[in-house]
Amino acid sequence: MISFIPYASFQFFTLIAFLLAPIIILGLMGMRNTLYNDCVAILMTFLIFAAQPEQLISILLFIIWQAVLIKGYLAIRTKNNNSACFYIAIVLAIIPLFLVKLSADVPALNFIGFLGISYVSFKSIQMIMDIRDGLLKEIPLIQYFRFIVFFPTISSGPIDRYRRFREDTSKIPTSVEYRTLLYQGLNKIFLGFLYKYIIGYLIHKYWMGSPMLLPDTLSSIWLYMYGYSMYLFFDFAGYSNFAIGVSYLMGVRTPENFNKPFISRNIKDFWNRWHMTLSFWFRDYIYMRFVYTAVKKKWLKNRYLISDIGLTLNFLVMGFWHGFMLQYIIYGIYHATAFILFDKFERFNKKHPFWPKDNKWMHALSVVITFHVICFSFLIFSGRLDFLWQR
């Protein structure tokens, strides 16, 4: 059976071009056939996972499991805002993802999981949290299914928010609005080809694949660090552009994932530009919730210490989310440390100004320093330094 991994083959692009043609024609007329859109989503979800039946079964069971949890918790929350029920619902929602991450060390669990389970899990977890906060009063099953199996972003994001997605799917763009979406969507798709299949490919083959980078010498590792950082950006940003572009063609304004991250002037600025939907998800649902709870319950008096603990928790969870491997955990700790140190530096500079923000030379130096701090973190993430702690 032909594999239809999202944006990985000419067959995939040919198929979606054929399936999206009626959507585009109707969109240009200021119309939408919701039933057809739903059928396309179901068909594409089936084709994406049909080549591996165990994955198809896994995603079907996952969707049912999360639907039961969300609808069940919504019914409980309507009657009683019980904290214990909320935490139980969150744990039960996370269990499938936890088992998939654990399968790297426990081969017996390899049958669990499917392509994109991390990103789909984020969608269901955020819905439970929004129910807890009283932001969601009702969730029609059909709208839940549309959100969960929105095929353009199902494998690797960007991570949308249910309420924002619901607004887009509930409102039909006018013909003028859709023409703009179509133009922007096609531009995103072509930019995706440039990033992923031209620049990313060339970097991977001729830079990272160079025999000069094979030995574990300081110079080869240093050059590999730059190459891997560039490849990681162009490959993932290319994929994100594909997903956003196809979403636009379907009339859904999926949020951006990257905003020129390598011109960031500090670590905080970087996480406002890199993998933004993931970064903002962790910020809103882990860091901010921890800080709010810690302050409300008066766990600690020092608000800076609360923030530091929240940042550490935030990036540790992000590290574990990538996998239960040492390189990912160190990557998370590294970013937490960098963020905390910059926060302290910023506070000190506010009291004792010595690093002017409006100086163009200082700004340029900040960008260069931040670029290298980030590239080194990607070197850790890549696993190229594993030999240091495996000896």
Rank of each mutant, 00 (worst) to 15 (best):
I142V: 13
L97M: 02
I340H: 12
C85A: 15
I286C: 11
P6R: 05
Y73S: 03
S382E: 04
K268Y: 08
I117D: 06
A104V: 04
H204L: 09
L69D: 08
D358T: 04
K301L: 14
I380K: 04
K298D: 11
T337F: 15
I117G: 01
K296V: 04
D343G: 14
F236I: 03
L60S: 09
N82D: 13
R253K: 14
L182T: 01
W355V: 10
N349Y: 00
F114Y: 14
L365M: 15
V120I: 07
I48T: 01
F233Y: 14
F10S: 13
Q126A: 13
E54S: 13
V91N: 03
Y36T: 01
S156C: 07
D235R: 04
L305H: 06
L305S: 03
L202S: 08
F378T: 08
F378D: 05
L379V: 01
L135G: 00
F165W: 11
F86D: 08
I189V: 12
S366V: 15
I221Q: 13
A50W: 15
I70G: 01
I64Q: 09
F150Q: 05
L232Y: 01
L213W: 10
F18E: 02
G30S: 06
L26K: 15
L379Y: 02
I63D: 11
I148P: 00
L43K: 13
I380Y: 12
L181G: 06
C39P: 00
I309L: 15
